[in-house]
Write a protein that binds this DNA or RNA. Structure first.
Length: 487
RNA sequence: GGUCGGGUGGCCGAGUGGCUAGGCAGAGGUCUGCAAAACCUUUUACAGCGGUUCGAAUCCGCUCCUGACCUCCA
């Protein structure tokens, strides 16, 4: 663990050396999905990004407690803490219990994460499972004088808070400007300040999801769950809090205010924000209707898609961009990633066929390893890591072609390196299940073809090759042997 | 309007002062019965205009374009 990791901290807007509060333990909290509908690809990008970060920290030997919540209550449709609960609305629409909605989309989310080979978090707490913790936190905030109750609803007093603390430290905006932006025309607002947000909301009669509290039968505000649950599982102050950039201005700003108001301490040392996935330069989002579901992406069943792409090709596509950059989606970009991913995987499969020789390898493997770590240490720069790994790909292919040599010790090191970085850290995996049945079958077919070739019966050998090609199997002739892969 | 970003070759995407990532696509070559794969070589760059510097895609200024957030969304 001699690596110095640099992490871009939204708080300081610079890369900072990562120093865990309690090394080797690391507390990592990531805002999870609101499970009232299917996750779309943009959501997935964030979770894949943090999966990379989690995996790398684990690889380095940190004892990471990774908490990612499931928001299953309290997230309202409209702004200003009014309107319907997202779950209740969807429940009415689908004629289901709200918790059926939650269950359905939670399971769907897990399925998708599994397809993307994202490791599950250590704890995946739900808002509904932590109502009492949220109520306790709200009580404490009221006791500390930063919240007030009106007609059974509790609001956070932003203006009071901002006199003593920097409310906008994540975004650098001026409070006055915020007030400008939220000028309310309607006069029925029961909040004291325009920026105040709800910690606890009194349920209307038609509201299905509600719990008793000291103030009313109601439900928690959206932001309080993350404060309460991160506090419970990671403590008043923990290392890394992550989420999409879109959450910084409101959700995370309010999280900080709540935790600070409750515990008198800054909850998070490093705030990390992932950038958006865009389509034609515009953010993919639920409301814009330009998002597609992972299932649609895998099958290609969407007007924007010309064909389907495998989960690993998509993961590779995401890893080819840095997590803080926007990533623009297009069929061409995914085609390129798909091919690049296959090239990487093919080379790795070739590793086991390489025969070591010589005194000195054609590539400095130790130096390559250093560069790989350097890339990841620099704010988890997976695109640079991949570019280093492709240097290894070229080398592996050259050795296989007999145009370069690798020593026995370097080959072992190379295998370890590729395994560590490609599978453990980048979280990629081979997609073709190498079942014995198909392998034996292919061995047989290849043998037939090679016999035909030996007899100069090219009509037969070409027929075999072309037919296989039409079935999606590509034969690759090498000097010594013939291998195959899926196209 | 405010805050924070971005404009890199055909596409995606790294890169913050000199050594000009990477993937895909294109071109030429090697290999091959053919094809593919693989390897080697290679073309089209840093929005524009000024400035700082021996030297700028990289720093500064201005202009243009564009994105996100400020209202539910990772």
């Amino acid at each position: 663990m001699t690596n110095n990791i640099l992490i871009y901290n939204t708080l300081s807007r610079t890369k900072e050396v990562f120093e865990p509060i309690n090394a080797p333990f690391v507390g990592l909290y990531v805002c999870g999905p609101t499970v009232y509908s299917d996750v779309h690809l943009g959501n997935c990008r964030t979770f894949v990004s943090f999966d990379l970060i989690y995996r790398y920290l684990l690889h380095l030997g940190f004892k990471v407690r990774y908490v990612r919540n499931i928001t299953d209550a309290g997230h309202l449709e409209g702004d200003r803490d009014e309107g319907d609960d997202k779950f209740a609305k969807k429940a009415k629409l689908e004629k289901l219990e709200p918790m059926e909605i939650v269950q359905k989309y939670t399971l769907g989310f897990h399925d998708v994460m599994r397809l993307f080979n994202a490791l599950p978090p250590n704890i995946e707490p739900t808002a509904t499972g932590h109502i009492s913790e949220q109520i306790e936190m709200v009580k404490q905030i009221i006791d500390n004088g930063y919240a007030y109750e009106v007609n059974g609803t509790v609001y956070f007093d932003v203006e009071k808070y901002s006199k003593e603390h920097n409310y906008t430290l994540l975004t650098n905006r001026l409070l006055e400007d915020l007030l400008e932006g939220t000028r309310v025309l309607g006069g029925q607002d029961e909040k004291k300040g325009r920026l105040d947000f709800a910690l606890w909301i009194k349920a209307k009669p038609e509201h299905i999801m509600h719990w008793p509290s000291p103030w009313s039968v109601g439900f928690p505000g959206w932001h309080i769950e993350c404060s309460a649950m991160s506090n419970k599982y990671l403590g008043e102050r923990f290392d890394i809090h992550g989420g999409g950039m879109d959450l910084a201005a409101t959700h995370h700003t309010n999280e900080i205010a709540q935790s600070q108001a409750c515990n008198h301490t800054q909850p998070v040392k490093y705030w990390m924000h992932t950038n958006m996935l865009t389509v034609n330069g515009t953010r993919m989002s639920k409301s814009a209707g330009n998002g597609f579901l992972p299932g649609e992406l895998f099958t290609g069943q969407h007007p924007l898609l010309k064909r389907g792409y495998s989960p690993m090709a998509v993961r590779f596509f995401m890893l080819q961009a840095h997590y803080r950059s926007t990533l623009d989606f297009s069929n061409d970009a995914l085609d390129a990633s798909d091919k690049g991913f296959k090239r990487l995987m093919t080379a790795i499969a070739l590793l086991n066929k390489l025969k070591p020789s010589g005194e000195k390898s054609g590539l400095d493997i130790q130096d390559l390893e250093k560069r790989c770590y350097a890339a990841m240490n620099d704010d988890f720069n997976s695109p640079v890591l991949l570019s280093e790994l492709f240097e290894a790909v070229r080398f592996i292919n050259s050795v296989y072609d007999g145009k370069a040599v690798v020593t026995e010790s370097d080959l072992a090191l190379l295998k370890k390196l590729m395994n560590n970085f490609v599978f453990d850290i980048l979280g990629l995996q081979q997609e073709i299940p190498q079942s014995n049945d198909i392998n034996k079958l292919m061995e047989f077919v290849i043998k037939l073809r090679n016999e035909a070739k030996a007899a100069k019966d090219y009509a037969t050998s070409d027929k075999i090759r072309i037919s296989l090609n039409e079935m999606g199997i590509q034969l690759k002739d090498n000097k010594e042997e013939t291998s195959w892969s899926k196209i």
